[in-house]
């Protein structure tokens, strides 16, 4: 068995399983363990409050519309995330891989220029957001090692992915896949879990505000 076969076979299965199992385990721990407290008689709708906060926090807070940092985080954040999701789900090699390994995606891959463009958005966002961690005193103070590892690992995964774009080399394909697998294993134990926790975080806050007849 070559290394590439190993990476595409057993190691892929193993890392994907770890990702699914531990991410699910983490979510179960987060959502179903610990104390649940009785809540006060509602003055408003917790459900609508949750919905409002889940949707409302997609945009920056109105008080921060004049704030450069908020604009930066919002634009760079969306640039990175949208670029990344397009790459993840619509890039031709990914569509092919997902169809082969997981599920028959109903959509067609984007053309090459679409790939390049989304990669550029993703990289521009990730690089600026990551570098800011070193030069903004606030963010430098609060950044954990995890935040740097998560950003760095994501960057390396994306970089090797783009380097393998020529699809001429099994080595580059293997390198990218191997790093993806590392990333998948790291994911459930890191701040990358925000991928799944954000609606709950916003939702709990919104429900609390909704119950109190206020907004968050």
């Amino acid at each position: 068995m070559t290394l590439l076969e190993l990476l595409e076979g057993p190691l892929w299965i193993a890392s994907a399983s770890i990702f699914v199992a531990f991410a699910a385990f983490r979510l179960i721990v987060i959502l179903f363990t610990g104390r649940r407290e009785a809540e006060a008689r509602p003055a408003g709708s917790p459900f609508l409050g949750a919905l409002r906060t889940i949707l409302g926090h997609f945009l920056p807070w109105r008080r921060l519309l004049g704030n450069g940092k908020a604009w930066f985080v919002t634009i760079a954040g969306y640039s990175f995330h949208i670029g990344l999701f397009v790459l993840l789900l619509f890039a031709a090699p990914h569509v092919e891989f997902i169809r082969e390994k997981i599920v028959n995606l109903p959509w067609d891959p984007i053309p090459r220029w679409g790939f390049i463009l989304s990669a550029q958005f993703a990289f521009a966002g990730l690089i600026t957001l990551w570098l800011r961690r070193f030069v903004d005193p606030v963010v430098r103070l609060i950044s954990r090692p995890d935040d740097h590892v998560a950003a760095g690992l994501t960057f390396i995964v994306m970089l090797t992915g783009c380097m393998a774009l020529g699809e001429q080399s099994a080595f580059l394909r293997g390198l990218h896949l191997g790093l993806v697998e590392l990333w998948l294993i790291y994911f459930p134990f890191s701040s990358l879990m925000h991928t799944f926790t954000w609606p709950f975080s916003r939702g709990f806050t919104g429900a609390m505000a909704g119950r109190r007849g206020t907004r968050a």
């Binding site: 987060i30 959502l31 807070w61 908020a70």
Partner: peptide, 24 residues
């Protein structure tokens, strides 16, 4: 950790260290 429940745990696991809280 005595008061920990789904709410606090969701919050604790959602922060991405963007620093915007400082601006408020």
């Amino acid at each position: 950790i005595a008061e920990f429940g789904p709410r606090a745990q969701s919050w604790m696991n959602a922060c991405v260290r963007c620093g915007l809280c400082a601006e408020a």
